[in-house]
Simulated assay, not measured.
Amino acid sequence: MSRPDQTSYMLRAAAGDAGRAYKRQLIDLLDIQVGQTALDMGCGPGTDLPALAERVGDSGTVIGVDRDQAMLTRARERTDGLHQVEIREGDVHDLPIEPGTVDRAKIDRVLMHVAEPADALAQLHHVTRPGARIGLAEPDWDTLIVDAEDLRTSRAFTRYTTEEVVRNATIGRSLARFAEQAGFRVETVLATTPVFRDFQEADHTLGLGRNMQQAIDAGRVDRERGHRWFTGLSAGPFYASFTLVSVICSR
């Protein structure tokens, strides 16, 4: 299976029940005030920018930063007419933001993909003000479980996902440590468990088919066994889940 269009993938993942719930919680815990400057670091297609704009009000500023042109285009379309939103092209390792100017910031499922998570958090510390509040949310893919009669193949799928598919697959469990090492004070650590009962939704979000095919092609799973595993999942009933870690910290 080919990798899905990333902008559509992110929008669909955010629109699901699990996506909406943790995003709302993360933004609520940021305690954004009217007139503040809020940063969405790695904003993607701008899923959360309207909600941030609502919190800062007409007198505040929301800055969305991403390096992907397709994401930036969708983010600009999504925030057309929201005068307080600024979309900036940039890398999380070198933020296009003046030092000490951000009051609130969030990083949502970005650090698992970046080359140097510690450097990205150091950049975030550089651009935030003293007293700023920061929200981080990342999965821990070692905790991915997929129910199947063939438990051995389910475990092989999770190992392959962790070792080969996601760059920083266990970043969720390390978030609090990384935040403290970057100079932030950790205030809250939460763990939630998104649950998938719909096979099609899980296949889209978790990459069941495409990642299993990659594992087969890499010789990590027997071809017949992998195809039988995937076919069995699609026949249902279905269950999969993983742990998502959210950290709220201050500067």
Rank of each mutant, 00 (worst) to 15 (best):
P50Y: 14
P50V: 12
L52T: 13
A53G: 13
E54V: 14
E54C: 09
R55P: 10
D58H: 10
D58K: 13
T61E: 12
T61D: 08
T61A: 08
V62D: 14
I63F: 11
D66I: 04
R67W: 15
D68E: 07
D68N: 07
Q69C: 00
Q69T: 00
A70S: 08
A70E: 02
A70I: 02
M71Y: 01
L72H: 00
T73F: 00
T73D: 00
R74Q: 09
R74S: 09
R76W: 13
R76A: 13
E77Y: 10
R78C: 10
T79F: 08
D80L: 15
D80V: 12
L82N: 08
L82D: 05
H83K: 11
H83S: 10
H83G: 12
V85S: 14
V85E: 13
E86W: 15
I87N: 06
I87C: 04
I87P: 05
R88L: 14
R88I: 09
E89H: 15
G90S: 14
G90K: 15
V92I: 14
V92L: 11
V92F: 11
H93F: 11
H93C: 09
D94V: 09
D94I: 10
L95Q: 02
L95Y: 04
P96K: 05
I97P: 03
I97W: 03
I97R: 03
P99C: 09
T101F: 03
V102P: 06
V102A: 03
D103A: 06
D103R: 05
D103L: 04
R104W: 13
A105D: 07
K106N: 15
D108P: 10
D108Y: 15
R109L: 15
V110W: 04
V110Y: 02
M112I: 11
H113T: 05
H113Y: 11
H113S: 03
V114Q: 11
P117Y: 00
A118N: 05
D119F: 13
D119I: 14
L121C: 03
Q123M: 10
Q123P: 08
L124R: 06
L124H: 05
H126G: 09
V127F: 01
V127T: 02
T128N: 04
R129A: 05
P130I: 10
G131R: 01
G131A: 02
G131H: 03
A132W: 04
A132C: 07
A132Q: 07
R133K: 13
R133A: 15
I134V: 15
G135Q: 04
G135C: 07
L136T: 06
L136E: 05
A137L: 15
E138C: 10
W141Q: 03
W141T: 09
T143S: 10
T143Q: 11
L144F: 10
L144E: 13
L144K: 11
I145C: 12
A148N: 14
E149V: 15
E149W: 14
D150M: 01
D150Y: 01
D150E: 01
D150T: 01
L151K: 14
R152G: 12
R152F: 14
T153V: 09
T153W: 04
R155F: 07
R155Q: 10
F157P: 03
F157E: 02
F157D: 03
T158A: 06
Y160G: 00
T161Q: 02
T161Y: 06
T162H: 07
T162N: 07
E164G: 01
E164P: 01
E164L: 02
E164R: 04
V165P: 00
V165Y: 01
V165I: 02
V165M: 00
V166T: 07
R167H: 08
R167W: 12
N168A: 08
A169G: 01
A169F: 01
